[in-house]
Protein backbone atom coordinates (compact mmCIF):
# COMPACT_ATOMS: atom_id res chain seq x y z
CA UNK A 1 0.00 0.00 0.00
CA UNK A 2 2.80 2.32 0.90
CA UNK A 3 4.70 1.30 -2.15
CA UNK A 4 1.78 2.15 -4.31
CA UNK A 5 1.55 5.63 -2.94
CA UNK A 6 5.19 6.53 -2.80
CA UNK A 7 5.86 7.33 -6.49
CA UNK A 8 2.78 9.46 -6.67
CA UNK A 9 3.85 11.57 -3.73
CA UNK A 10 7.28 11.90 -5.17
CA UNK A 11 6.12 13.27 -8.50
CA UNK A 12 3.78 15.60 -6.74
CA UNK A 13 6.59 17.07 -4.65
CA UNK A 14 8.72 17.49 -7.71
CA UNK A 15 5.87 19.24 -9.50
CA UNK A 16 5.33 21.61 -6.59
CA UNK A 17 8.96 22.62 -6.37
CA UNK A 18 9.11 23.14 -10.09
CA UNK A 19 5.96 25.17 -10.06
CA UNK A 20 7.27 27.27 -7.21
CA UNK A 21 10.40 27.98 -9.07
CA UNK A 22 8.63 29.12 -12.19
CA UNK A 23 6.20 31.11 -10.12
CA UNK A 24 9.00 32.84 -8.31
CA UNK A 25 10.64 33.84 -11.52
CA UNK A 26 7.35 35.00 -12.90
CA UNK A 27 6.57 36.95 -9.75
CA UNK A 28 9.70 38.92 -10.17
CA UNK A 29 8.71 39.82 -13.68
CA UNK A 30 5.12 40.43 -12.68
CA UNK A 31 6.18 42.76 -9.91
CA UNK A 32 8.39 44.72 -12.23
CA UNK A 33 5.55 45.00 -14.73
CA UNK A 34 3.16 46.10 -12.04
CA UNK A 35 5.69 48.59 -10.76
CA UNK A 36 6.06 50.06 -14.21
CA UNK A 37 2.34 50.44 -14.70
CA UNK A 38 1.84 52.06 -11.29
CA UNK A 39 4.64 54.47 -12.10
CA UNK A 40 2.91 55.34 -15.35
CA UNK A 41 -0.37 55.88 -13.54
CA UNK A 42 1.35 58.17 -11.11
CA UNK A 43 2.77 60.17 -13.99
CA UNK A 44 -0.70 60.51 -15.47
CA UNK A 45 -2.40 61.53 -12.23
CA UNK A 46 0.38 63.97 -11.51
CA UNK A 47 0.00 65.70 -14.85
CA UNK A 48 -3.78 65.69 -14.49
CA UNK A 49 -3.32 67.39 -11.18
CA UNK A 50 -1.16 70.06 -12.74
CA UNK A 51 -3.71 70.63 -15.49
CA UNK A 52 -6.61 70.92 -13.08
CA UNK A 53 -4.58 73.20 -10.81
CA UNK A 54 -4.16 75.60 -13.70
CA UNK A 55 -7.83 75.30 -14.66
CA UNK A 56 -8.84 75.75 -11.06
CA UNK A 57 -6.88 78.98 -10.75
CA UNK A 58 -8.76 80.35 -13.72
CA UNK A 59 -12.13 79.06 -12.52
CA UNK A 60 -11.63 80.67 -9.14
CA UNK A 61 -10.80 84.00 -10.72
CA UNK A 62 -13.91 83.75 -12.87
CA UNK A 63 -16.01 82.77 -9.91
CA UNK A 64 -14.92 85.78 -7.93
CA UNK A 65 -16.36 87.92 -10.71
CA UNK A 66 -19.55 85.89 -10.90
CA UNK A 67 -20.37 85.88 -7.19
CA UNK A 68 -21.93 89.37 -6.96
CA UNK A 69 -23.82 88.44 -10.09
CA UNK A 70 -25.40 85.37 -8.54
CA UNK A 71 -26.17 87.12 -5.29
CA UNK A 72 -27.84 89.93 -7.19
CA UNK A 73 -29.95 87.54 -9.22
CA UNK A 74 -31.35 85.75 -6.19
CA UNK A 75 -31.85 88.82 -4.06
CA UNK A 76 -35.11 89.92 -5.64
CA UNK A 77 -36.73 86.56 -4.98
CA UNK A 78 -35.69 86.76 -1.35
CA UNK A 79 -36.70 90.36 -0.83
CA UNK A 80 -40.04 90.01 -2.53
CA UNK A 81 -40.69 86.84 -0.52
CA UNK A 82 -41.74 84.85 -3.55
CA UNK A 83 -43.08 81.45 -2.62
CA UNK A 84 -44.12 78.56 -4.77
CA UNK A 85 -47.80 78.42 -5.60
CA UNK A 86 -49.28 75.53 -3.70
CA UNK A 87 -51.89 74.56 -6.23
CA UNK A 88 -49.21 73.77 -8.79
CA UNK A 89 -47.33 70.65 -7.79
CA UNK A 90 -45.22 70.53 -10.95
CA UNK A 91 -41.58 70.91 -10.08
CA UNK A 92 -38.43 71.13 -12.12
CA UNK A 93 -35.02 70.17 -10.82
CA UNK A 94 -31.89 71.12 -12.66
CA UNK A 95 -28.79 69.08 -11.88
CA UNK A 96 -25.63 71.06 -12.57
CA UNK A 97 -22.79 68.65 -13.16
CA UNK A 98 -20.42 68.18 -16.08
CA UNK A 99 -19.22 65.63 -18.61
CA UNK A 100 -16.01 64.75 -16.92
CA UNK A 101 -15.33 62.40 -14.09
CA UNK A 102 -12.31 61.74 -11.88
CA UNK A 103 -13.20 64.54 -9.55
CA UNK A 104 -14.22 62.96 -6.30
CA UNK A 105 -17.85 62.97 -5.33
CA UNK A 106 -18.98 66.26 -6.81
CA UNK A 107 -21.34 64.80 -9.41
CA UNK A 108 -22.63 62.09 -7.12
CA UNK A 109 -23.43 64.70 -4.49
CA UNK A 110 -25.64 66.70 -6.84
CA UNK A 111 -27.36 63.61 -8.20
CA UNK A 112 -27.93 62.27 -4.72
CA UNK A 113 -29.92 65.33 -3.70
CA UNK A 114 -32.23 64.75 -6.64
CA UNK A 115 -32.35 60.98 -6.14
CA UNK A 116 -33.44 61.42 -2.55
CA UNK A 117 -36.12 63.89 -3.62
CA UNK A 118 -37.36 61.53 -6.32
CA UNK A 119 -37.63 58.71 -3.82
CA UNK A 120 -40.07 60.75 -1.73
CA UNK A 121 -43.82 60.74 -2.33
CA UNK A 122 -45.15 63.16 -4.90
CA UNK A 123 -42.21 62.53 -7.17
CA UNK A 124 -44.41 61.87 -10.19
CA UNK A 125 -44.76 65.61 -10.71
CA UNK A 126 -41.05 66.24 -10.73
CA UNK A 127 -39.09 66.55 -13.90
CA UNK A 128 -35.34 66.75 -14.13
CA UNK A 129 -32.97 68.46 -16.51
CA UNK A 130 -29.49 67.00 -16.43
CA UNK A 131 -26.71 69.41 -17.23
CA UNK A 132 -23.64 67.32 -17.94
CA UNK A 133 -23.35 63.66 -18.86
CA UNK A 134 -22.36 62.54 -15.39
CA UNK A 135 -25.62 63.38 -13.69
CA UNK A 136 -27.45 61.85 -16.63
CA UNK A 137 -25.50 58.62 -16.26
CA UNK A 138 -26.33 58.44 -12.57
CA UNK A 139 -30.00 59.36 -12.83
CA UNK A 140 -30.99 57.59 -16.03
CA UNK A 141 -30.77 54.08 -14.59
CA UNK A 142 -33.62 54.48 -12.13
CA UNK A 143 -35.28 57.74 -12.98
CA UNK A 144 -35.01 58.05 -16.74
CA UNK A 145 -38.75 58.78 -16.98
CA UNK A 146 -38.23 62.03 -15.09
CA UNK A 147 -35.61 63.43 -17.42
CA UNK A 148 -36.95 66.01 -19.88
CA UNK A 149 -33.68 67.23 -21.33
CA UNK A 150 -29.97 66.59 -21.16
CA UNK A 151 -27.24 69.08 -21.90
CA UNK A 152 -23.73 67.94 -22.57
CA UNK A 153 -20.35 69.22 -23.74
CA UNK A 154 -19.98 70.90 -20.36
CA UNK A 155 -16.75 71.16 -18.48
CA UNK A 156 -14.24 71.00 -21.30
CA UNK A 157 -13.98 74.76 -21.46
CA UNK A 158 -14.85 77.41 -18.88
CA UNK A 159 -18.60 78.15 -19.02
CA UNK A 160 -19.70 81.34 -20.78
CA UNK A 161 -22.83 83.40 -20.51
CA UNK A 162 -23.77 82.17 -23.96
CA UNK A 163 -23.83 78.62 -22.55
CA UNK A 164 -26.12 79.76 -19.77
CA UNK A 165 -28.39 81.55 -22.27
CA UNK A 166 -28.74 78.40 -24.32
CA UNK A 167 -29.59 76.37 -21.25
CA UNK A 168 -32.11 78.94 -20.11
CA UNK A 169 -33.76 79.00 -23.53
CA UNK A 170 -33.92 75.22 -23.51
CA UNK A 171 -35.55 75.24 -20.08
CA UNK A 172 -38.12 77.81 -21.14
CA UNK A 173 -38.92 75.97 -24.34
CA UNK A 174 -38.80 72.40 -23.04
CA UNK A 175 -42.57 72.36 -22.92
CA UNK A 176 -42.76 71.53 -19.24
CA UNK A 177 -44.84 74.13 -17.44
CA UNK A 178 -43.42 74.04 -13.94
CA UNK A 179 -44.81 75.80 -10.89
CA UNK A 180 -41.54 75.89 -9.00
CA UNK A 181 -38.17 74.29 -9.06
CA UNK A 182 -34.63 74.20 -7.93
CA UNK A 183 -31.19 74.46 -9.43
CA UNK A 184 -28.94 72.02 -7.59
CA UNK A 185 -25.26 72.87 -7.84
CA UNK A 186 -21.99 72.58 -5.98
CA UNK A 187 -21.16 75.76 -4.15
CA UNK A 188 -17.47 76.35 -3.87
CA UNK A 189 -16.20 77.13 -0.39
CA UNK A 190 -12.48 76.54 -0.38
CA UNK A 191 -9.92 74.45 -2.22
CA UNK A 192 -10.80 71.45 -0.12
CA UNK A 193 -14.50 71.91 0.37
CA UNK A 194 -17.67 72.49 -1.58
CA UNK A 195 -21.27 71.96 -0.68
CA UNK A 196 -24.45 71.09 -2.52
CA UNK A 197 -26.67 74.13 -2.61
CA UNK A 198 -29.77 75.13 -4.45
CA UNK A 199 -31.32 78.20 -5.99
CA UNK A 200 -35.07 78.54 -6.32
CA UNK A 201 -36.96 78.73 -9.59
CA UNK A 202 -40.45 80.16 -9.81
CA UNK A 203 -43.14 80.46 -12.38
CA UNK A 204 -44.31 83.87 -13.45
CA UNK A 205 -47.57 83.26 -11.64
CA UNK A 206 -45.76 82.67 -8.36
CA UNK A 207 -43.89 85.93 -8.75
CA UNK A 208 -47.03 87.86 -9.58
CA UNK A 209 -48.69 86.48 -6.46
CA UNK A 210 -45.78 87.26 -4.18
CA UNK A 211 -47.00 89.08 -1.06
CA UNK A 212 -44.47 91.87 -1.25
CA UNK A 213 -44.64 92.47 -4.98
CA UNK A 214 -47.03 95.36 -4.40
CA UNK A 215 -44.25 97.51 -2.96
CA UNK A 216 -42.53 97.35 -6.33
CA UNK A 217 -43.39 100.18 -8.62
CA UNK A 218 -44.62 100.20 -12.22
CA UNK A 219 -44.61 96.54 -13.06
CA UNK A 220 -46.33 94.97 -15.98
CA UNK A 221 -46.28 91.33 -16.91
CA UNK A 222 -44.07 92.03 -19.92
CA UNK A 223 -41.33 93.47 -17.71
CA UNK A 224 -41.66 90.63 -15.23
CA UNK A 225 -41.43 88.09 -18.00
CA UNK A 226 -38.27 89.61 -19.45
CA UNK A 227 -36.84 90.09 -16.00
CA UNK A 228 -37.40 86.47 -15.08
CA UNK A 229 -35.99 85.18 -18.33
CA UNK A 230 -32.81 87.09 -17.80
CA UNK A 231 -32.52 86.21 -14.15
CA UNK A 232 -32.87 82.52 -15.01
CA UNK A 233 -29.94 82.87 -17.39
CA UNK A 234 -27.86 84.70 -14.83
CA UNK A 235 -28.61 82.17 -12.09
CA UNK A 236 -27.59 79.36 -14.42
CA UNK A 237 -24.46 81.27 -15.33
CA UNK A 238 -23.59 81.64 -11.68
CA UNK A 239 -24.34 77.97 -10.96
CA UNK A 240 -22.16 76.89 -13.88
CA UNK A 241 -19.28 78.97 -12.55
CA UNK A 242 -19.65 77.61 -9.03
CA UNK A 243 -19.88 74.09 -10.36
CA UNK A 244 -16.83 74.47 -12.59
CA UNK A 245 -14.76 75.83 -9.74
CA UNK A 246 -15.82 73.10 -7.29
CA UNK A 247 -15.18 70.46 -9.91
CA UNK A 248 -11.67 71.62 -10.72
CA UNK A 249 -10.73 71.99 -7.08
CA UNK A 250 -12.07 68.57 -6.20
CA UNK A 251 -10.35 67.03 -9.22
CA UNK A 252 -7.14 68.61 -8.02
CA UNK A 253 -7.57 67.02 -4.59
CA UNK A 254 -8.59 63.68 -6.08
CA UNK A 255 -5.57 63.60 -8.36
CA UNK A 256 -3.28 64.65 -5.55
CA UNK A 257 -4.56 61.77 -3.45
CA UNK A 258 -4.22 59.37 -6.36
CA UNK A 259 -0.61 60.42 -6.88
CA UNK A 260 0.07 59.96 -3.18
CA UNK A 261 -1.52 56.52 -3.17
CA UNK A 262 0.44 55.54 -6.26
CA UNK A 263 3.60 56.71 -4.49
CA UNK A 264 2.82 54.49 -1.53
CA UNK A 265 2.15 51.56 -3.82
CA UNK A 266 5.41 52.14 -5.65
CA UNK A 267 7.29 52.11 -2.37
CA UNK A 268 5.72 48.84 -1.30
CA UNK A 269 6.18 47.23 -4.68
CA UNK A 270 9.84 48.26 -4.85
CA UNK A 271 10.37 46.70 -1.47
CA UNK A 272 8.72 43.44 -2.49
CA UNK A 273 10.56 43.50 -5.76
CA UNK A 274 13.96 43.84 -4.08
CA UNK A 275 13.11 41.26 -1.48
CA UNK A 276 11.99 38.75 -4.07
CA UNK A 277 15.04 39.35 -6.18
CA UNK A 278 17.24 38.81 -3.17
CA UNK A 279 15.37 35.62 -2.33
CA UNK A 280 15.88 34.28 -5.84
CA UNK A 281 19.60 35.05 -5.71
CA UNK A 282 19.95 33.43 -2.31
CA UNK A 283 18.14 30.33 -3.46
CA UNK A 284 20.25 30.00 -6.55
CA UNK A 285 23.38 30.36 -4.46
CA UNK A 286 22.19 27.65 -2.10
CA UNK A 287 21.51 25.39 -5.05
CA UNK A 288 24.98 25.95 -6.49
CA UNK A 289 26.75 25.52 -3.17
CA UNK A 290 24.83 22.42 -2.18
CA UNK A 291 25.38 20.99 -5.64
CA UNK A 292 29.10 21.60 -5.31
CA UNK A 293 29.12 20.11 -1.83
CA UNK A 294 27.38 16.99 -3.12
CA UNK A 295 30.02 16.54 -5.79
CA UNK A 296 32.90 16.58 -3.30
Amino acid sequence: MLGRFAPGVCTQVAAVSQQQQTRNMATLKQISMRLKSVKNIQKITQSMKMVSAAKYARAERDLKAARPYGEGAVQFYEQAEVTATEDDPKQLYIAMSSDRGLCGACHTGVSKVIRLRLAEPGAENIKVICVGDKSRAILQRLYSKHIVAVANEIGRLPPTFTDASKLATAILTCGYDFGSGKIIYNKFRSVVSYQQSDMPLFSQKAVENAPKLTVYDSLDSDVIQSYMEFSLASMLFYALKEGACSEQSSRMTAMDNASKNAGEMIEKLTLTFNRTRQAVITRELIEIISGAAALE
Partner: peptide, 17 residues
Amino acid sequence: SGTITVNEDSSVQVLAE
Protein backbone atom coordinates in the same frame (compact mmCIF):
# COMPACT_ATOMS: atom_id res chain seq x y z
CA SER B 1 -28.81 94.10 -21.80
CA GLY B 2 -29.80 92.78 -18.42
CA THR B 3 -31.86 93.65 -15.37
CA ILE B 4 -32.18 96.43 -12.83
CA THR B 5 -33.48 95.75 -9.34
CA VAL B 6 -34.14 98.45 -6.78
CA ASN B 7 -34.82 96.81 -3.45
CA GLU B 8 -36.74 97.98 -0.45
CA ASP B 9 -33.54 98.63 1.48
CA SER B 10 -32.59 101.00 -1.36
CA SER B 11 -29.80 98.77 -2.62
CA VAL B 12 -29.55 98.64 -6.39
CA GLN B 13 -28.46 95.77 -8.59
CA VAL B 14 -27.67 96.23 -12.23
CA LEU B 15 -26.80 92.93 -13.88
CA ALA B 16 -25.77 92.97 -17.51
CA GLU B 17 -24.77 90.26 -19.91
